[in-house]
Simulated scan of single mutants.
Amino acid sequence: MSNFDYIIIGAGAAGLLLADALGNDDFFSSSSILIIDQDNKTKNDRTWCFWESGNGKFDHLLHKSWPIIHFAGKELNRSSPIAPYRYKMLRGIDFYDHYVEKIKKNPNVTWVKDRVIMVEENGKKVLVTCQNGFFSGRMAFDSRFNPEPVRKQQKYPLLQQHFMGWFIKTEKPVFNPEEATFMDFSIPQKGNTRFMYVLPFSQTEALLEYTLFSENLLEKSEYENGIQDYMEQNFGRIAFEITDVEQGTIPMTCYGFHKHNSNRIVHIGVAGGWAKPSTGFTFYNTSKRVTTLVDHLKKNKPFTEFYKKGRFWFYDLLLLDILHRQNHLGQSIFESMFKKRKPQLILKFLDEETSLWEDLKIISACPKMPFIKALFQRMFL
Rank of each mutant, 00 (worst) to 15 (best):
M1G: 08
I9K: 09
G10N: 02
G23P: 02
S30C: 14
L34F: 05
D37Y: 05
D39F: 04
K41C: 07
D45R: 01
W48E: 07
N55E: 13
K57E: 13
H60S: 13
P67T: 00
I68W: 14
R78I: 14
A83H: 14
Y85W: 08
Y85I: 07
K88N: 10
H98E: 12
E101V: 14
I103R: 04
P107R: 15
G123H: 06
Q131D: 09
R138I: 12
M139W: 12
Q154G: 14
L158C: 00
L159W: 02
Q160L: 12
Q161R: 07
F167R: 10
F167P: 01
T181G: 03
F182Q: 12
P188G: 00
K190L: 03
M196W: 00
V198D: 07
P200K: 11
E205W: 08
E205Q: 06
A206I: 08
L207Y: 12
L208D: 02
F213T: 03
F213I: 05
N216Q: 07
L217T: 11
K220M: 08
Y230R: 09
F235K: 03
E241W: 05
I242Q: 01
T249D: 12
K259P: 08
R264H: 08
R264I: 11
G272M: 05
W274L: 05
K276G: 03
G280N: 09
T282W: 03
F283W: 02
Y284D: 15
Y284E: 15
L293I: 06
V294P: 04
H296M: 06
L297Y: 13
E305P: 05
K308T: 15
G310Q: 10
F312H: 15
F312I: 11
L323E: 01
Q326A: 02
F334Y: 09
K342N: 11
P343A: 09
K348P: 05
K348Q: 13
S355P: 09
W357H: 09
W357T: 15
E358Q: 14
I362K: 07
I362A: 08
C366K: 04
M369K: 10
M369G: 01
